[in-house]
Design a protein around this nucleic acid. Structure first.
Length: 391
DNA sequence: GATCCACGGGAATACACGGATG
DNA sequence: CATCCGTGTATTCCCGTGGATC
């Protein structure tokens, strides 16, 4: 061990030991660059994308798999690498003035959680393709479409667009997506990613290939947890046995497993411990609702809705007995300057998409329609910490 | 002047329940 | 007894407005 490292360790001791080395790599919504143990799926994706390496465009495809199976992790990582690769070999799109011929297609990743309108969709695709920033005001949707046509008209090989989080119960619906692609030139191929089985979605009427991602096997999930812990936590913080417990409970859902690790870590940090204990893990598991909504979806909500949630997670149970009371409590907070009407509407809208759930109260004491209270469909500790880290 | 979108505000509709009505 | 009605809430739906930007 060299001198620097020794000194650093002494320094750290004076700071006091710390559990978390790197929150970013511990976050359940972050995808690491090399997802572990997904080799076979990666191979099938590459098989599908194979024409790309001859400068051709692959047909449309659909990737399906259950919640937490690592679909987004693989596709984001793969597209990031492919885009890097093709940027190196291509010149036209990025310089966009000279009519040189690109030798490889471009790659664009679009997350439909963050893409709530036609405008946002075209905006996102265009923004990925050009260097200069694309204005998000004062420009019409048609303008965006036209610019994309101009741009892609110069490209012989075109682009492949990965469209993540399609066709869930409340995502953009399939027809809308097909329409949006219909607005683009023909040298655009898409790779849609969603939870529905291929035969449950109309998207597969437009695809040549379907690729299935299975849930994680237990041992893989243990590895995923240990990998994250080794990057994000201090040495020996996560016992192998505890990782196995989390994996058993998570039943193949990597999102929930990572959320549990995150919440358990938060608890241990609060107690100023440097190792996770049984009870940390128990408490974490206890806190994660089942079924839960992806924290990624929660953190993709508009800022003011997240603000409302941030207040919501700190309310006392008494303040959550009805939507009306919850609304009062939230909008009376000094950090919220939304009207009560808006707060209430936000709560209903978030219940609609499954971020929270309305539960009708059992006792309909008074007159009128019985109220319902709002319950979280995500682990509050995880959201609180992730939200605060971003502020 | 144009564009998009988030907000605000409120109207319309749904629901529960007790009491009136046929 | 079955159904309707009125009242009080809860929930959904819709549209105009205004900020930010080109």
């Amino acid at each position: 061990m060299d001198i620097d490292a020794r000194i650093k360790r002494r320094q750290r001791r004076t700071d006091g030991p710390r559990l978390v080395e790197d929150y970013e790599s511990l976050s359940p919504v972050a995808h690491i660059d090399e997802p572990s143990d997904r080799g076979p799926v990666l191979e099938r994706l590459l098989d599908h994308l194979d024409p790309v390496f001859d400068g051709q465009l692959p047909p449309n495809a659909y990737v399906s798999g259950p919640f937490g199976s690592g679909k987004s992790a693989i596709v984001t990582a793969l597209f990031r690498h492919l885009d890097q690769l093709s940027t190196e070999t291509r010149s036209i799109i990025h310089t966009s003035t000279r009519a040189a011929t690109p030798t490889a297609p471009g790659f664009v990743y679009v997350d439909m959680r963050e893409t709530t309108s036609e405008f946002a969709f075209y905006h996102r695709v265009l923004d990925e393709l050009v260097d200069e920033p694309v204005p998000d005001h004062g420009i019409s949707t048609d303008d965006l479409r036209n610019r994309l046509h101009d741009l892609l008209g110069q490209s012989r090989t075109g682009i492949v667009v990965a469209v993540d989080h399609v066709c869930g119960p409340h995502d953009t619906d399939a027809d809308e997506l097909v329409d949006m692609f219909a607005g683009l030139p023909s040298n655009v191929s898409w790779l849609a990613v969603g939870r529905d089985d291929p035969d449950e979605t109309p998207l597969t009427e437009y695809t040549a290939t379907s690729i299935r991602v299975d849930r994680y096997r237990r041992q893989m999930l243990v590895d995923v947890l240990m990998t994250r812990a080794s990057v994000g936590l201090t040495q020996q913080a996560l016992d192998h046995e505890l990782a196995r417990r989390i994996a058993d409970w998570a039943d193949g859902n990597a999102h929930d497993a990572l959320a549990a690790l995150f919440v358990a870590t938060d608890r241990a940090t609060r107690d100023e411990r440097t190792r996770l204990t049984d009870s940390d893990v128990n408490a974490a598991i206890e806190e994660i609702p089942s079924p839960s909504v992806s924290l990624g979806r929660v953190l993709a909500l508009p800022a003011n809705k997240q603000l409302v949630l941030r207040e919501l997670v700190d309310l006392d149970p008494e303040e959550r007995t009805s939507v009306t009371e919850t609304t009062e409590a939230i909008s009376s907070s000094p950090s919220v300057d939304l009207s009560t009407g808006t707060v209430k509407r936000f709560l209903y809208e978030m219940a609609e998409v499954g971020v929270v759930e309305r539960v009708q109260s059992e006792t309909s004491n008074d007159k009128g329609r019985p109220p319902s209270r709002v319950e979280l469909r995500f682990p509050p500790t995880a959201f609180r910490r992730l939200y605060d880290l971003r502020q």
